[in-house]
Write a protein that binds this DNA or RNA. Structure first.
Lengths: 127, 127
DNA sequence: TCTATAGTTGACGTGCACGTCAACTTTTGG
DNA sequence: CCAAAAGTTGACGTGCACGTCAACTATAGA
């Protein structure tokens, strides 16, 4: 459990370029500290990056990732009204993710069907 | 089961603009016929659109959607070598989709955790 | 101390996926 | 028959997510 990371380290770990990490900083997704002029990423930055990249892979925009991650940030203090809003948002996001799961399932089913026909044809060709 | 569709009809059905459908045609994703100069979409076009938009929602590029849809097209004749390639590709795509499912599951778990803490806090605030 | 390596800030470029006119033609309902 | 609605082809604009220099600075190891 290292506490800090260089930009190169995190870029390599997450298979992105330093440019991407600087871009995400511009967008307010992470705010690494500085040692002199050099960026120093904490575990919190690393976690936010991990979540952001996960969101990106699922097709979310950087802005959407930021909003969600900010909202879910456990360090953020909240009043009951905000907590209710958060619960609401969670339900929305969950629904959106379940929609995606349905898309994936539909695609997987279609792929199974194609594969089945594919194997059938191979069998017929082998005869 | 209508056989043909206007550009407006399909745009409305899939909640995109006609511009998008023309763009997809430029990219070779669909090739509707013409009645005079007006586009006439068939059920095949409609199916390809449905698959394409599903792919888009999952974060694929239009080009990727096209490749996959072309490859899976049942109307396409294939020799055994191509069939084997297709099976290979299906395995790849399936693996990619399962990766996405894992991302979604991880996100859902994180959301459950946030919701749990959220409800706890609400409970504490109510006391 | 000197050099190689890593890091920094601009600033401009790029590919993608459309949006947004404009100018025009075509089709359809009254 | 004629107006309104729908459709067409360019062509340029836009927002996003970085890529790609350039020019410079900081730092660490021999």
């Amino acid at each position: 459990m290292k506490q800090t990371y260089s930009i190169k380290e995190l870029a390599r770990e997450f298979a992105v370029t330093p440019r991407t990490l600087r871009f995400y900083e511009d967008q307010g997704l992470v705010s690494p500290g500085r040692r002199g002029t050099t960026r120093v990423y904490t575990d919190r930055d690393r976690t936010r990056l991990k979540l952001a990249l996960r969101g990106r892979r699922l097709g979310l925009s950087v802005e959407e990732c930021k909003e969600i991650i900010d909202m879910y940030d456990p360090a953020r203090p909240r009043n009951p009204r905000q907590l209710l809003r958060l619960c609401e948002k969670i339900r929305e996001h969950r629904a959106a993710l379940l929609d995606k799961v349905r898309d994936i399932e539909a695609t997987l089913n279609a792929m199974d069907e194609v594969e089945r026909r594919c194997l059938e044809e191979l069998l017929a060709a082998a005869a």
